[in-house]
Every structure is written in C-alpha cells, then in structure tokens.
Design a protein around this nucleic acid. Structure first.
Length: 211
DNA sequence: GCCAACGTTGGC
DNA sequence: GCCAACGTTGGC
C-alpha cells in the first residue's frame, strides 16, 4: 500500500502534544517478566485496553504530503479506506497505539506543498495494529531496528468528506479559537496530533463539513 | 547521563 | 533553497 507517512525512504512526522486524559485500565507490560525469563522469545505486542467515558470520541490531525498520499487518493482507495503506515516517531506511536480508537475523527492535512492545508475529514475504522511495513526489508518504510515487542503502529482511516475548500495553515493562524491548536504551535512536527473537540467543531464549520 | 553532531520535517 | 525546530545517535 502507499506510504502515507514518509518522504523519501523515511517515515514521518512528529511533535509534542497535550497529554491525553485517558484512564488506562489495562496496565501495559512491555517489560513483562515473561520476556526476561525467556530472552530468546520476543514478546508479542497487544493493544492496550483503555477505558473512555461512555460515548467519548476523540479527534486527531494526520499529516501527509499530497504527492505521497493525498486526500483524493484516500477517496479513491478501495472502500475509501487506507492504512496509515510509516509513522516512525515515538510520540505518534503512543497516540496510534494507546489513544486512537474506532470512530475517532481525523482532520486530513496536506503538508509540504505550496499551500499547507487541512483538506478533508476522515474517521478511524480500525485501531492500532502492527505496522508490518517496518518489518518488510523490501518496503520503503522498512525499519531495521523495529522490534516485535514494541512495533510501530498503524490505524485504518476512511474518507468522510473533503472540506469545501482547503483550510490553509495561514488562514487557520488567523482564527482565534484555534490559538492553542497543536498544528499552529511553533516547531510543530508531529504527524499525528490530538485535536480538541472545540477545535474540531471550529474546523468543520470553517470547512463546511457536516459529518 | 550529558551533549555535540547529524538527520529530518516542513514552513516560508 | 534556507533554516529553525526537533529527534536520534554515539562518544565520552
């Protein structure tokens, strides 16, 4: 499949972000005793169990270079769905693995072009699973250092609707309600970023998108 | 464990 | 193409 997240040979983006206020009910045991007792066997990774408030939904922004994989590419993909592979940043991995769940909203952002902009809305249709491209030596996103015990993670997203027009980064900077948005912070590089529900509403309104 | 060197992201 | 910001690596 296509590498959403990667320019050349390397995967993608990064950035600091607000701490999620999630209650983690299932303790992660990445360094379980099983592994230490059995050093030869790499521990299998499993999706952490996370409890959300009833009906809670979260929102994210994902970056892609349009030449790599544009929003239009997503719309044209089978079932308007693709897997978001190639994320090779630890903070983004934590979001993909521990925070993002089916049904979450996604803002699709085109980076690197002449006019960086949010161009569409998508939704998460499959949550965190092993990004196999990291283990495929022939794949563009191969990571020789990837470990099965702590794999890179991908999710599947499905196109919902393009925005009526691209919401350029420059124009978003002028929107007061978005002053704290991660995307607009200096040095913001994370390719998977959290978005607040207020920011989500503001952007969908600006983009003329009614989910 | 510090931190300099290096590589990458991505706006401009 | 420039370069600031950030992440990673590796020497010590």
């Amino acid at each position: 499949m296509v590498a959403k997240n990667a320019k050349r040979a390397a995967p993608k983006k990064t950035k600091p972000a607000p701490k999620p206020q999630v209650r983690v009910t299932g303790a992660r045991k990445d360094k379980s005793s099983a592994a230490s007792q059995n050093p030869g066997a790499e521990k299998k990774w499993t999706l952490p169990a996370i409890t959300r408030r009833e009906g809670e939904r979260r929102y994210w922004l994902m970056k892609s270079e349009p030449e790599m994989f544009s929003y239009e590419d997503l719309e044209n993909a089978p079932n308007r769905t693709t897997h978001w592979d190639g994320v090779r940043n630890n903070q983004a991995r934590i979001y993909l693995r521990d925070q993002i769940r089916v049904g979450d909203g996604v803002l699709y952002y085109h980076s690197g072009g002449e006019e960086p902009a949010i161009v569409g809305v998508a939704r998460v249709v499959r949550e965190g699973y092993r990004d196999w491209t990291a283990f495929d030596a022939t794949h563009e996103h191969y990571d020789p250092k990837a470990k099965e015990s702590n794999p890179w993670i991908m999710v599947d997203i499905q196109a919902v609707s393009p925005t009526a027009k691209p919401l350029s980064l420059a124009s978003l900077r002028g929107v007061r309600a978005l002053g704290a948005m991660v995307l607009l912070q200096k040095g913001s590089r994370l390719s998977v970023q959290p978005v607040t529900s207020d920011e989500w509403k503001t952007i969908l309104a600006l983009g003329g998108v009614a989910e």
